[in-house]
Amino acid sequence: MSLPAARDPILKMTTYIIRRILVVIPVIIGVSFLSFFFVHMIPGDPVTTMLGVRARPQDIVQYKAQMGLDQPIYVQYIRYIEQLLKGNWGTSIFTRVPVAKDISYRLPATIEAIFFALIIGIVFGIGMGILAALKRNTLIDTGASLVALTGVSMPIFWLALILIYLFAVNLKVLPPGSRLDAELNIKYVTGFYTIDSLLMGRLDIFWNVIKHMILPSFVLSTTVMPGIMRLTRASMLEVMQKDYIRTARAKGLRMGKVIMKHTLRNALLPVITVIGLEISGLLGGAILTENAFSWTGMGQWFYNAITVRDYPIIQAAILLNAIIFIFMTMLIDISYAFIDPRIRYQ
């Protein structure tokens, strides 16, 4: 598509970004309603769960009135949103801990794991992609393809089990789970243990955090690594055919330099594309990974809540998952606009 050049690119860009952010609002409203509705469709009675079966009828009536559960569903929904806006996500039925409090601990854990998974995925994905392209049709290329194919085809929960038993139970070189050795304590500031440990000035703790991060983030990285590798390889091959690269090589420039200069910049696009496609996979993978590694994040939280029917948590978790998804998608779109200006006119 050839498009007219923007008269004022910066203005155009800003407009695009603002528009993209505004679009998110109705989606979030819709999502909040859907998640509210979902939870109300789950069989079982939250009141009984909350008060116990021995609750007296008058207590149940009173509780329902107090919680507004005797109101029509749309009224309940509006109340729920009102409370949400005040930062009140409700209270867990089983632990009686405010859901917002749980979120403040669990959200950073999940974000940290996903962040490191992305780093691993990007580094190895791009690295393998470049290597495969340079050594096209050699054993290395085939090997990289095989690794990518295996990665994308392997059940993530199975991979987690294998790695735990191999590296933690048998070889005992990496911890089997959790975010930090139990004997170590971290001063809670941001909730991101890597940052918090550095804020404490404790490199030993930082190193411990990293060791705990390796297996879970690696497992999670398999959701993005193969895609990044394949796209990098494809775009590398494409670029390497281009005249200017050939010219550059013909001029005797060193291959490494050529790659750095021309092709790596092009690799950014596939990376973002793959991440965009796999946000859903990352969040789903987080559930399986966090369970396997007793990682105290959102995924473990959601799954546990489902198994005991802790309605307020289920509701919050579904909504939060959706919100994270929406925001990540939005970020991806916006970064596209920065990298490839054509996108923003679509």
């Binding site: 999502v31 998640s35 789903g284 959601f302 998952n321 959706a322």
Partner: peptide, 8 residues
Amino acid sequence: QAFPAIPL
């Protein structure tokens, strides 16, 4: 689509 697959 806003609900990630496995959680949904």
